[in-house]
Simulated scan of single mutants.
Amino acid sequence: MDIWRRAANPWGQDVLIGVSWDLMWSAVIAAVAFVIGHALWVRTRKEEAHEPPADVPADIPEKIERHSFASRAFHWVMSIAMLVLLVTAFVPVMGWQFNWVDLHWQAGVLLILTVVYHVIHAIGWQDFWSMFQLGVSEGIATLKHILSPEAPAPPKAGKYPFDHRMYHHVIVVVSLAAIITGVLMMVRIDTPLWTRNPYLFSDTTWGVMYVVHGLSGVSLILLVASHIYFALRPEKRWITWSMVRGWIDREHYLEHFDPAKWVVTDAGMKSADGAAPGTGAVAEQIPSAKRED
């Protein structure tokens, strides 16, 4: 299986022209294998009981805000942009031909705008650094529990569990690679903002960009597929619903989160992302909460 494609340019030089399409099919197969493998793996594990903490605060209400409207709007707009990008990037290769170039770069612009919005929103209205806590001991405990059902369950997390944070970091790196190379590649096409200039970089440089962009796109096939899979799993749907309606119930909050790390505040206060509460209480991440690592 080839990793990239090469061809001769008009001057007879052998240059990169993109990733091998074998990688696309490999990513699709890997995504299907992961979904099937994980579903079978889950069936081998006994159902875990999530005990509420012994010292439960008395004033935790029935509904706790997890995602403000601003956060949910970003998530769903970004999701649409990402899906359009993947469809326009790979479906034509599979045989369905349509005018994909305009849709692709327009979806790319939409993705860039949502990312810029998200960064500003996270820095200005959310606890930006809570997503970037490594949690080494938490990660080790999580890995041990995955490898062996006899290993104790990892400690309950704050608002953002370890696996959520790690997925976020990976998607940030891959998406930024796709965005940066995608913006540079847009110079090669005509848009309402400029006339194409395919000679801005050498063929060798363009080839490297194509490969990095393609590898990012192939990686996103697996990342997006796994994200959708987990969102649809029965035991995870309560998290998915929180991205639709904005809140989780008291039972799931106590089962999966540590009230000392994700503190529920009074309903009259604003959450960490600055949104006024709707129904129920508002919860915010406390970055100063004591960690075990």
Rank of each mutant, 00 (worst) to 15 (best):
N99G: 15
A58I: 04
E292C: 05
H227K: 07
Y210F: 08
L223A: 09
V87I: 15
I60G: 02
R291D: 02
A151H: 06
P198H: 03
I171W: 05
P234N: 11
V170W: 07
Q133D: 06
L134V: 10
I180T: 10
A276D: 15
F98G: 06
G268P: 02
V263Q: 00
E138H: 14
H169N: 13
H252K: 15
I3Q: 04
R45C: 02
A8G: 07
I29W: 10
W96I: 14
P155W: 01
I64C: 01
R291I: 00
F98W: 05
F98Y: 06
L85C: 07
Q13A: 08
V136W: 04
H121V: 02
R165F: 05
D266R: 03
R66M: 13
K270G: 04
E138N: 11
F132D: 15
T195M: 11
Q285V: 03
H252R: 14
A8P: 02
S26V: 13
D22G: 14
V15Y: 05
S226F: 01
R66N: 04
S20D: 14
P53K: 08
G124Q: 08
A267N: 10
S288T: 15
Q126N: 10
S202T: 13
V19M: 09
A122H: 08
T114M: 13
E284R: 01
I64Q: 00
M243I: 09
P57E: 00
S130K: 03
D127M: 07
I221Q: 00
P10V: 03
